[in-house]
Design a protein around this nucleic acid. Sequence first.
DNA 1: CGTGGTGCTGCAAAGGTTTGCAATGAAGTA
DNA 2: TACTTCATTGCAAACCTTTGCAGCACCACG
Lengths: 387, 387
Amino acid sequence: MTATTSDEGAAVPVTIRDVARASGVHISTVSRTFSAPHLVNPETRVRVLACAEDLGYRPNRAARALITGRTHNIGLIIADIANPFFPPLIKAAESQARHRDYHVFVADTNEDPTAEEELVHALAKQVDGVLLCSPRMSNSLIEQLSREVPLVVVNRQVTGLPCVLMDVGQGARSAIEHLVGLGHRSIALLGGPRSSWTNREMRRAASAAARAGGAELTVLGPNAPTEVGGSAIAEQVRRSGVSAVLAYNDLMAIGLIEGLDALGVRVPQEVSVVGVDDITLSRLTRPKLTTVATPTGAAGRTAVDMLLQQDIESPRGARGSGAGTALGVRRTTAQVMLQTDLVIRDSTGPGPYARPARPLAAPRGPDPHCPAGPGTPTTATGDAVAS
Amino acid sequence: MTATTSDEGAAVPVTIRDVARASGVHISTVSRTFSAPHLVNPETRVRVLACAEDLGYRPNRAARALITGRTHNIGLIIADIANPFFPPLIKAAESQARHRDYHVFVADTNEDPTAEEELVHALAKQVDGVLLCSPRMSNSLIEQLSREVPLVVVNRQVTGLPCVLMDVGQGARSAIEHLVGLGHRSIALLGGPRSSWTNREMRRAASAAARAGGAELTVLGPNAPTEVGGSAIAEQVRRSGVSAVLAYNDLMAIGLIEGLDALGVRVPQEVSVVGVDDITLSRLTRPKLTTVATPTGAAGRTAVDMLLQQDIESPRGARGSGAGTALGVRRTTAQVMLQTDLVIRDSTGPGPYARPARPLAAPRGPDPHCPAGPGTPTTATGDAVAS
DNA sequence: CGTGGTGCTGCAAAGGTTTGCAATGAAGTA
DNA sequence: TACTTCATTGCAAACCTTTGCAGCACCACG
């Protein structure tokens, strides 16, 4: 029974009916053997299982989904897989989903809002829910799509929808305070895509922090959130005369450093640079990048949890063929904010107003040197998700 | 008709039946309106389309697949999304599939053979075929799985299955010749995973090239194909006394450079390093990496083409409920080999036996400086795929 | 011996779509 | 006028599975 798999090169798909015939029971019994084993006689069960194993039977998930309304699949829509920010999130989501007996299908949109919409439609009937990561489409469109399939949004705040956010505001504040503490008084913020929620949050928080620290903040952008976007603006950064830069993400920061290097501007001696995301790459460039670590893994896990939570209550395509369920009630509006952390490496150094006595160090925050546990939710995850 | 989408927040799925009722025709007519428009009266057609648009009808792909046997989805199984080698491949495959009206679902296996197998099973009934990229499972298992769902293998040679390969053999040869030309006579090859086809090919070709060039080749490994794998072996590289290294991939090469740097060994002054893949990262590290560019985009496109080619001939789950189709005949055994190119940057320099007169340059090959068109198939793609 | 309960199994409908076949009607041809 | 052809549409089976309901046999209890 264990490895009796007969090697009959069966390209012909074997169905539940074949198993039923082979084991001399009705198809419903076979079905129950898999989906409700406690309802079938142990003897019958082993016989059916043996036959199934022997024939190489595998339940057709699509057919099952047609009637149960649950596919046990999750869709994961990503703006750009090539951005190293996402893989950790994807992996975390996949692992979390696997534990819950779900599979994850990833789709890349190439930063194209149209592709995003189309993909949601394509996925709608083949998954139980969709995780929308850093979406580029409008809030209203997202809301509209959320009526077609359960949605959880990551890195974007959409009222009425479950969202997983990272506290980039706090991150930007820490970064600015770090720079101010190093003696920088003229700082540039390299903006990302215009439609990015993260972008707005960073700008808001950075402005406030700069004001509080007596520094001047120049906003440059919007820019493409890539190395190219960063290197392209190097010249402008130099002309602006700032002594420090906070970039929208690590990719831009790295590109900027490249660009400045090409212009003969040295980092961190002449200009300090801070990124956001703490992608693995940021540890490998020279100088190693000072950056705001975002809890991408935790975000992936949390998003999956929220989606499944939301799903469980509403088995779509329920048997009762009527508008019996009150509409709009099942919305889970929980929004989770995850904590970020400043990681200080080699791309930041003393600025023009540095106090010479004090050695360079983090200006505030407990133990800023890459603390072990980023990702602890600020607004209690438990509460929010449970609601 | 264009934007009459009534905003009735319909969470209740609208089916073909609703459209039929609304437009006063039979469901089969509605079905034909979408899947065979030429069979329905133009007037009826516009009426049905209008109703469908109005109700926000979207065909249920799962249900359609149940009867047609074709989902218009492609599965893409990747060993490790976090490896920057893959995103370009994924994007190319997606774009190619989109042109053919197919969607791509990506799944990451975390380099785990078991996960690979499970994913193929999970995907089997939900996609029309699967692209297996750099698989870690055994050839026999792959063959077995290929009876369950059409498969195309990338970066691995499996007899009897369609494969897309990159000519890393040629790449390794070019790299070794480059190093020999620079005056290196003692070279190390940093091996990758043991089960990797690429690994074997490189080793074979590198040995031959070294012998031909009068150099000695030391093989170190196997190693994990990551930065960590590279940096971990730095000490051993130094002890081995070689003046040049060819690494299994760029990630390892970059890790090695890091590791050597930590040991105080300078690249390329003391040791030259060559990678493979030409990931974007290789342009951003310092020194910029000399590497063998692999045509990942072309590989993704070709793989999709081959899969679809193979698919078209065999509409799985055909109507005729018998073993009518001759089994084993439809196998497309085409194997495509894509060309690679050496890209010379800053991580390689003159070795102990360099002839001082000659300035450092590429030893052979036409115009080795990043020619525009890597990815042209060696064995004519057209023929192979068409077979 | 009758009644009720329990454990197991079969029956058939349902889910949303496609598609071969037949029916209809109209137009064209002899 | 009668016959063929064609375009359009309806009918119903089929795809593979799940699940409420009913039937059956068996046991225990009164």
